[in-house]
């Protein structure tokens, strides 16, 4: 495998991850009716509290969205998935078929 090919592969994987983060941000914003643009939501911004200011009702909305869009179940034990956009995407990628 050439160095260039590896570099391209890494770039491709990084872009795919950015795309997925953006998709999740857009889905969350649409689902919760947030008045914010996905571009201004950072990947490590907390979803609760001073981040996106989500509450427990919103977190269930995200559980439903993740289940519908990715076929991934989120349970009470998976609270780390709500840490940030990155944490949620990590969780989805780890549990997707």
């Amino acid at each position: 495998m050439s160095t260039t090919a590896t570099y391209d592969e890494i770039r491709e994987a990084a872009q795919a991850r950015l795309d997925k983060n953006m998709k999740i941000k857009t889905l969350i914003i649409d689902r919760l009716g947030l008045e914010v643009s996905p571009e201004v939501v950072s990947d490590n911004q907390p979803l609760f509290g001073r981040g996106l200011e989500m509450d427990s009702l919103d977190s269930l909305e995200i559980v439903v969205m993740v289940n519908n869009e990715f076929g991934v179940s989120v349970n009470d034990d998976d609270i780390e998935a709500f840490g940030s956009i990155n944490a949620l995407v990590d969780f989805v990628e780890a549990h997707e078929d």
Binding site: L57, S59, L60, V64, D76
Partner: peptide, 10 residues
């Protein structure tokens, strides 16, 4: 009834 989380259910 759909997914549940904590004391909430969709």
């Amino acid at each position: 009834l759909g997914p549940r989380l904590g004391g909430l259910r969709s």
